[in-house]
């Protein structure tokens, strides 16, 4: 009975690892496709040929062609590249700035902390996408302004996580020990606080890639992100939305592209979260079983 319990627990852990490996593999496959997107394109994604416009999927054009006769598969691949690259850039930007702001605020406290955190509260109080739309509209358009706009509203989440971790860690004995070691505040932040708060921040970041992909595509769909003729999944869907009933592949193709990318990143985020879960990390063998054995 007890042995079976242990085995079951181990199998469960292994399954978690398997999931992580599988989704990591899928992510790498996606990144591979995205990085070498040009190599996979059967046609030039920007080559117009009005004589072949709006053709349904066929052997020559597996995903059909759009209004200007451009090959949809090529455009989806390039669009995926634009979307994923900008989403990853965005996540890196907000993770770095949010974490830096949160750690410094939590560590130093005082007026700086109050000021930055009230700013973060303001960002959190409004619906993010609405402010992002306003900011993107103020900037001169293009995918860069969409990234900046979303970065401006998305960093508070990271600042909050980093700050709360920092506040917990700040009063820990090992930070006092580091002070006694004669370490400076910068040394303590870089050497002890950051490494110990990175876990939850990274999980949030990986989980956020999918959400950021969606929001970027959303802004582009509204015409506030990538501008035509740049191939980007959001604006491709936007461009084809009037043809949804007559030529559905023009919208469905990019939709499937977003769907696949978002699902892969979300599943990866879940798997990473599960593996870093503190409940799964205590590797004291038989702790649970012993307790059960004592009280029959």
């Amino acid at each position: 009975m007890e042995v079976a319990g242990a085995r079951k627990k181990k199998a469960w852990k292994d399954r978690r690892k398997c999931r992580l490996v599988l989704f990591l593999f899928l992510t790498f496959a996606l990144l591979f496709v995205v990085i070498f997107a040009e190599r996979f394109c059967p046609y030039d994604p920007n080559l117009q040929d009005m004589s072949r416009s709006l053709q349904p999927p066929s052997l020559a054009h597996p995903a059909g062609t759009d209004r200007f006769g451009r090959d949809m598969l090529s455009r989806i691949l390039i669009g995926l590249k634009t979307s994923v690259a900008s989403a990853l850039t965005l996540v890196v930007i907000i993770t770095v700035t949010g974490t830096a702001a949160g750690v410094i605020c939590g560590f130093c406290g005082g007026i700086l902390d109050s000021a930055v955190m009230r700013m973060a509260d303001v960002c959190l109080a409004f619906p993010g996408l609405v402010i992002a739309m306003a900011i993107a509209a103020l900037l001169n358009g293009g995918i860069t302004s969409a990234v900046i706009a979303l970065a401006a509203v998305s960093w508070p989440k990271y600042a909050r996580i980093a700050r709360s971790r920092t506040l917990t860690l700040k009063s820990a004995d090992f930070i006092a020990a580091a002070r006694l070691a004669g370490s400076s505040s910068a040394q303590i932040i870089l050497g002890h606080i950051l490494p110990n708060s990175l876990g939850p921040i990274l999980v949030t970041a990986v989980l956020d890639i999918g959400a950021m992909l969606m929001e970027l595509a959303g802004l582009s769909f509204l015409g506030l992100g990538a501008q035509p003729p740049t191939a980007e999944l959001g604006n491709m869907m936007s461009g084809g939305r009037s043809m949804l009933q007559t030529y559905p592949w023009v919208v469905i193709g990019p939709g499937i592209g977003i769907f696949i990318a978002v699902v892969i990143f979300n599943l990866l985020g879940d798997a990473v979260g599960e593996c870093l879960d503190p409940r799964g990390r205590q590797e004291k063998p038989g702790n649970y079983i012993n307790r059960k054995g004592e009280n029959p």
Partner: peptide, 11 residues
């Protein structure tokens, strides 16, 4: 310190 384990950085 009183608690030796928490006086060392767990990482």
């Amino acid at each position: 310190f009183q608690d030796p384990v928490s006086s060392f950085d767990p990482r």
